[in-house]
Computed example of a mutant assay.
Amino acid sequence: MTETPNPHIVDADTITGEMRPIRRAVLALGSNLGERLTSLQGAVDALKDTPDVFVTAISPVYETEPIQATDDSGLYLNAVVLIDTTLSAPRLLDRALAIEDAFDRERTDVRNAPRTLDVDLIVVGDRRSDTDELRLPHPRAHERAFVLQPWYDVEPDAVFPGGDAIADLLEKTDRSVVTRRDDLELELQ
């Protein structure tokens, strides 16, 4: 069983003694190629096995239509994972990209191309970033039902950076594009 750290304390690096705050992060997972559920479960397992990352919640799985995608795009499976971490946002992004690579994610110039695995950082504490490499909070998450609905399922009182409640943002989206798949489940093993 994973022990959840108190998010109000600061963790000290055991080698350097450097103090690092524990932050809550929200990660969105998606897959529309290959063994979709296996890829999502693999991402959860890889996050769980990451030092300084504590998985605290996993949403139900949703199936969604691809958005602004190529004609060969299949349906996505999506989920949200909540974590507590002492990793910096750039290091957490590096880990997310490494997890995608481990599941043979191919990056192309085609926007919204089909993918075996997508691991997006939605929110990392109160961190803000607007670089080519890292945008926090995720610039389109607040308008995507496939992120907001699973997030709401695991944290119904969550507030998106900027002050909008996730519940209120979800009300503004088209929830007909997301279907909860109660026959599929991700596990924290």
Score class of each variant (00 low, 15 high):
residue 61 V to W: 02
residue 122 I to L: 05
residue 65 E to H: 13
residue 155 E to I: 01
residue 86 T to S: 08
residue 2 T to I: 10
residue 72 D to S: 11
residue 189 Q to H: 10
residue 70 T to C: 09
residue 139 P to R: 13
residue 1 M to F: 07
residue 164 D to S: 14
residue 66 P to A: 09
residue 36 R to A: 10
residue 116 T to P: 14
residue 17 G to T: 15
residue 121 L to W: 01
residue 143 E to V: 14
residue 43 A to D: 10
residue 176 S to L: 00
residue 9 I to C: 03
residue 54 F to R: 13
residue 168 D to R: 07
residue 93 L to E: 11
residue 73 S to I: 08
residue 185 E to A: 14
residue 102 A to R: 14
residue 26 V to K: 02
residue 40 L to H: 14
residue 44 V to S: 13
residue 145 A to C: 04
residue 30 G to C: 06
residue 123 V to D: 05
residue 88 S to T: 15
residue 71 D to F: 08
residue 25 A to V: 01
residue 176 S to G: 06
residue 182 D to K: 12
residue 93 L to V: 10
residue 23 R to Y: 06
residue 108 T to N: 09
residue 61 V to M: 03
residue 125 G to I: 08
residue 11 D to M: 10
residue 117 L to E: 13
residue 49 D to P: 00
residue 13 D to Y: 12
residue 180 R to C: 04
residue 124 V to Y: 08
residue 110 V to I: 14
residue 123 V to G: 04
residue 178 V to D: 08
residue 158 A to D: 14
residue 45 D to E: 13
residue 26 V to C: 11
residue 148 L to G: 08
residue 161 P to R: 04
residue 148 L to N: 11
residue 88 S to K: 11
residue 96 A to S: 14
residue 146 F to H: 12
residue 157 D to I: 15
residue 69 A to S: 15
residue 87 L to P: 07
residue 81 V to C: 11
residue 188 L to R: 08
residue 120 D to L: 01
residue 125 G to A: 07
residue 102 A to C: 01
residue 39 S to N: 15
residue 62 Y to V: 01
residue 70 T to L: 10
residue 73 S to D: 07
residue 91 R to I: 04
residue 104 D to S: 09
residue 10 V to H: 05
residue 33 L to T: 06
residue 34 G to Y: 09
residue 172 K to W: 02
residue 164 D to R: 15
residue 50 T to Y: 00
residue 164 D to M: 15
residue 130 D to W: 00
residue 143 E to F: 03
residue 80 V to E: 07
residue 160 F to Q: 03
residue 123 V to A: 05
residue 97 L to K: 12
residue 76 Y to K: 09
residue 43 A to R: 08
residue 155 E to K: 06
residue 141 A to V: 06
residue 31 S to N: 12
residue 16 T to Q: 09
residue 99 I to Q: 12
residue 114 P to A: 13
residue 137 P to G: 09
residue 106 E to N: 02
residue 29 L to W: 06
residue 22 I to W: 09
residue 38 T to W: 11
residue 146 F to R: 12
residue 105 R to D: 05
residue 76 Y to I: 06
residue 14 T to V: 14
residue 10 V to Y: 01
residue 68 Q to K: 15
residue 56 T to M: 06
residue 71 D to C: 08
residue 135 R to Y: 00
residue 174 D to R: 12
residue 143 E to A: 13
residue 30 G to T: 13
residue 161 P to N: 04
residue 52 D to E: 14
residue 115 R to N: 13
residue 183 D to F: 00
residue 48 K to I: 01
residue 74 G to Y: 00
residue 94 D to E: 10
residue 13 D to Q: 10
residue 13 D to L: 10
residue 45 D to Y: 04
residue 4 T to Q: 12
residue 40 L to P: 09
residue 2 T to Y: 11
residue 152 Y to R: 04
residue 101 D to H: 12
residue 58 I to T: 14
residue 170 L to N: 04
residue 38 T to S: 15
residue 104 D to I: 00
residue 154 V to T: 01
residue 144 R to K: 13
residue 119 V to C: 12
residue 86 T to K: 05
residue 10 V to F: 00
residue 41 Q to P: 10
residue 124 V to C: 14
residue 70 T to Y: 00
residue 77 L to N: 10
residue 34 G to R: 05
residue 122 I to N: 07
residue 134 L to P: 13
residue 171 E to H: 05
residue 153 D to F: 04
residue 151 W to C: 03
residue 97 L to T: 11
residue 149 Q to W: 05
residue 154 V to H: 01
